[in-house]
Design a binder for these strands. Sequence first.
DNA 1: TTAACTATTGATAATGAATATCATTATCAA
DNA 2: TTGATAATGATATTCATTATCAATAGTTAA
Lengths: 153, 153
Amino acid sequence: MGILEPTQPVQTRQTDVNEWLDILADSGYRLTAPRKAIVQIMAQSRHTLTPNQVFIAARQRYPNIGLVTVYRSLEKLEELGLIWRVHEIDGCHAYVAAPSGHQHLLICRSCNRAEYFKGENIEPLINRLGSERGYDIQEHWLQLYGVCSECQS
Amino acid sequence: MGILEPTQPVQTRQTDVNEWLDILADSGYRLTAPRKAIVQIMAQSRHTLTPNQVFIAARQRYPNIGLVTVYRSLEKLEELGLIWRVHEIDGCHAYVAAPSGHQHLLICRSCNRAEYFKGENIEPLINRLGSERGYDIQEHWLQLYGVCSECQS
DNA sequence: TTAACTATTGATAATGAATATCATTATCAA
DNA sequence: TTGATAATGATATTCATTATCAATAGTTAA
């Protein structure tokens, strides 16, 4: 039996734009028009988005927005745990709406659609490795890559 | 302590410089002085190394080496499976000697020392997720981060 | 509502990793 | 030994990300 056990699909995702805005405000950040545009885009997307993709999408809602503002807003949303930063193959970064609780990512290599899954009990492995190798293990990183059903057809 | 360690036999790792050179030659690549320097560095290091770190180390052995040559050689070694490319937090890339067989990485955040571990069976999870979500899962990525015993003290 | 404080913005420039170009050099098979 | 060409190193270039800074706009206190 493996350390990783599959579980039910969990689709709970923080898509509530107003909730995100409240969290921003409660954290002392101002609610500006560019920020609202970015929050709308990130909270509602099921795909990973690069800063430039967010920039292009945000200009539909707020044409004067600057790319640097996108970078800065994404940075804050990540800091608040509302979005995750994922590493692209080429070394660039993209972002996705964060799932609720501790989950991991399954990303479609073709369309960048992101799914979340739970179900790994990695603690025993971490404890064993930590004591065996003398490491203080702080973080783990599990991601799956594949092709989603739509992109297969 | 330095990034590069003096030669030490390492279990479960391909540290044989000559073996790497044979593989390069068998694959149709020429054995050049800069390439030999890079192979020596990569095969003997227990740490992840950025292209620039490899460059600095390689100049000790071959002072005229160019940074671009380092990039190109690392690319080839990765293509042959002799080294792995790992993603840094900032989005840059580093490389480590590849382990034998299918293993995963445990990296020290402080000194970049890399350990390998086996032992978790991800197949059931992948099969389950693939059929549940309709994904053709092609690749998975598991890495642990922590602080090694030396860096804790 | 108004005023004032200051977080935030957007334009621009700068940084830095990674890649492309190209004439020259060096490896290796014939 | 020699010739075809893989490989090199210097240089320029691309592109994602970050720094700078004056102007703007959100928020709070009055």
